[in-house]
Amino acid sequence: MSIMEKAEELAEEIVNSSEYEELKAKEEAMQADEDAQELLQQYQAQQQRAQMAQMNGQQPGEDLQQEMQSLQSKMQENEKVKSFMEAQQEFNKVMETVNQVISSALQDEEEEEQAEA
């Protein structure tokens, strides 16, 4: 089996995982909630402002930082957003573990090759 076939198989397993299914369900629920969407749009707009400031060599102003913190608090209070963020964290853990397994196998292979040399 080729590397690409294995990658496709892994991708299919990830898509069929309970963590991914939970993430997609929570994302759909969040997108159906108008309050959640409004909060996300406001937060993304503030994030863009902060990124633009940084790209121009400036630090985001204290007002912008306070606004972002306020929006983050509101997002945590919104049950749909909070559930989505928790599901996203769980899915990210799965992906980190997958990456660690791959990295570990590659590192073990390199160490074996160096030992043989």
Rank of each mutant, 00 (worst) to 15 (best):
E5Y: 01
Q47V: 03
L40Y: 01
E109K: 12
D108Q: 11
E110V: 15
A7C: 08
E9M: 10
G61W: 02
Q37Y: 02
Q58N: 13
N99H: 13
Q48E: 15
Y43I: 00
E62P: 04
Q69Y: 04
P60M: 11
M1Q: 00
I14T: 03
A29G: 09
K6R: 15
E19S: 06
N78K: 01
Y43W: 04
E96S: 09
Q65H: 04
M85H: 06
M85C: 07
S70W: 11
M55G: 13
E22C: 00
E109R: 13
N78R: 03
Q88F: 08
A25F: 04
E62R: 12
M75V: 10
Q59T: 12
N56P: 07
E67C: 01
Q72N: 14
Q59H: 12
Q72C: 10
I3D: 09
Q59V: 11
E67R: 02
Q37A: 05
G61C: 05
E112L: 04
E67L: 06
Q44V: 07
Q42M: 08
I102D: 05
L39R: 03
Q37M: 09
S83H: 05
F84K: 00
Q66G: 07
K24T: 00
Q54R: 00
Q31G: 09
A32K: 01
L71S: 04
E62T: 12
K80F: 09
A36Q: 00
F91C: 00
A7Y: 05
M95V: 05
E22G: 03
K80S: 15
K93D: 05
Q66K: 13
S83Y: 02
L64Y: 07
Q88K: 13
M75N: 09
G61Q: 05
E12Q: 11
K6T: 15
Q69W: 02
L40Q: 01
K6M: 15
V94S: 10
E86W: 08
Q42N: 08
E86S: 13
L71R: 01
Y20L: 01
S17H: 02
D33R: 06
Q72M: 14
V15Q: 15
A50L: 04
M68E: 03
S70V: 12
E28A: 10
K74F: 03
K82I: 13
F91W: 04
L39N: 05
G57W: 11
E86D: 15
Q37N: 08
